[in-house]
Amino acid sequence: MDWMKISSAIFLGMMIVLLLPRAKAIMSNTPEAKPGDWNSAILPLLAVAGLIALLMAFAR
């Protein structure tokens, strides 16, 4: 295993350690979704998924 892989692994491990407390704090402070909230987020994200599929089809 070369030094690039080891450095990348250490970097990603540090990112997880640094992000974990922040993620915990955000999870406990995240407000409850109201009816229709998820729909308003999922529809544009589905459009993004469709665009990616289209771009990958063009790239082939």
């Binding site: 990603l12 997880i16 992000l19 993620a23 407000p31 909230d37």
Partner: peptide
């Protein structure tokens, strides 16, 4: 729209991806 309800989901997703 206020998308702050996605915060927890996005941060957990990011940890899973990392």
């Amino acid at each position: 729209r206020d998308f702050s309800f996605m915060g927890g989901f996005l941060f957990v997703g990011m940890l899973v991806v990392l």
